[in-house]
């Protein structure tokens, strides 16, 4: 019932941003600021989602997802799919809800008091927010890497196999195998193989972040969430992480938040532009950066605001 009503309200809203529904097709004459106006007036609008996405197989589906911190709404009815085996970047100015959306995927926001949500998400068809979902089991299917490297105060080996340890895996051969595979996957094996039992805290910042990636992929996650993984790193370490994301593409489905336009354009297959808690435009990275359908997106990616 409610859902049907919402559909009706949506349809009643004008969609000025769609080129088909009016306005000239040339990029120069696109109607501008309408989306931002709608946002500011708290009107509902549909995000501009490029049709090429519909051919992708989705690992994660976000459906009408809203999130409230107490009384203030942080995410507004976001609907999007995250393609399997691809890198999807979330961009947008600070406070636009990128990280909130990312942390909603593995329900990290549960740790914060007074958070309410609406809508739903599905990981490979399984609802993430349905009542009775085992959050612990869910998080085991999702890997996450944070802004700042956060290795645990234990050895490199123990860090990598942490998710297996908490599952009670004791077989040494299995643990060692996973450790090596994950460290190789994260490009840290050569540097770390002789010091696996040293404290992880003695690694450099870039190595620590790659260790965190190794830790995240050790559990073979269905989707890997990267929350500005390079924001605390120097340019060289950043470069290595970007190369790594490139290598992980294909074997893992990656959803990453970034503040860095170049990084998004270099590493991602798809890019979603968010603004003040709304999804504005979402499409193949090249299209979003080179010929965005909305003037607002163009303004942002070319650095005219944000």
């Amino acid at each position: 019932m409610i859902r049907a009503q919402r559909e009706v309200t949506k349809k009643s809203v004008v969609k000025p941003m769609s080129p088909e529904s009016g306005g000239p097709k040339s990029a120069v004459e696109r109607p501008t600021r309408k989306v931002f106006d709608a946002v500011k007036e708290k009107r509902v609008f549909d995000a501009e989602i490029h049709p090429s996405l519909s051919t992708e197989e989705m690992v994660l589906e976000i459906d009408d997802f809203s999130l409230f911190y107490g009384a203030s709404q942080a995410l507004w009815e976001i609907s999007m799919g995250i393609p399997k085996g691809k890198v999807t970047a979330l961009i947008g100015p600070s406070g636009c809800g990128k990280s909130t959306l990312l942390r909603s995927v593995n329900r990290m926001n549960d740790l914060i008091d007074h958070v309410r949500i609406g809508g739903t998400m599905r990981l490979n068809g399984d609802s993430i927010y349905a009542p009775g979902v085992d959050v612990i089991e869910l998080r085991k299917r999702i890997g996450m890497v944070f802004q700042k490297p956060n290795p645990f105060p234990m050895s490199i080996f123990e860090n990598v196999i942490y998710s297996l340890r908490i599952d009670g895996e004791r077989k040494k051969s299995v643990l060692e195998e996973v450790c090596e595979a994950s460290l190789r996957g994260a490009g840290l094996w050569e540097e770390a193989k002789d010091r696996l039992h040293d404290s992880a805290l003695r690694l450099s910042g870039g190595q620590q972040q790659r260790l965190c990636i190794a830790r995240a992929i050790a559990a073979e996650p269905e989707v890997l969430l990267l929350d500005e993984p390079c924001s605390a790193l120097d340019p060289i370490a950043t470069g290595r992480i970007e190369d790594l994301i490139e290598e992980l593409k294909g074997s893992y489905s990656i959803l990453m938040v970034t503040h860095n336009m170049q990084q998004a354009s270099r590493t991602s297959d798809y890019t979603a532009f968010m603004y003040l808690g709304r999804l504005v435009e979402y499409g193949p990275t090249e299209d979003v950066f080179v010929q965005p359908k909305l003037a607002e997106t163009e303004d942002y990616v070319t650095g005219r605001f944000g």
Binding site: N106, M108, L111, I136, E137, L138, R139, K140, I142, G143, M144, F146, K148, N150, P151, F152, P153, M154, Y162, S163, R165, I166, D167, C212, R215, A216, A219
Partner: peptide, 27 residues
């Protein structure tokens, strides 16, 4: 104990008690 460590542990699928026992208490 930095909250980033707790979050890292939760994100790996650890329960609250596992996080306390393996991360928070040693730290």
């Amino acid at each position: 104990v930095p909250s980033s460590m707790r979050e890292g542990s939760y994100a790996c699928g650890a329960t609250k008690w596992q996080t306390i026992r393996r991360i928070v208490l040693p730290r």
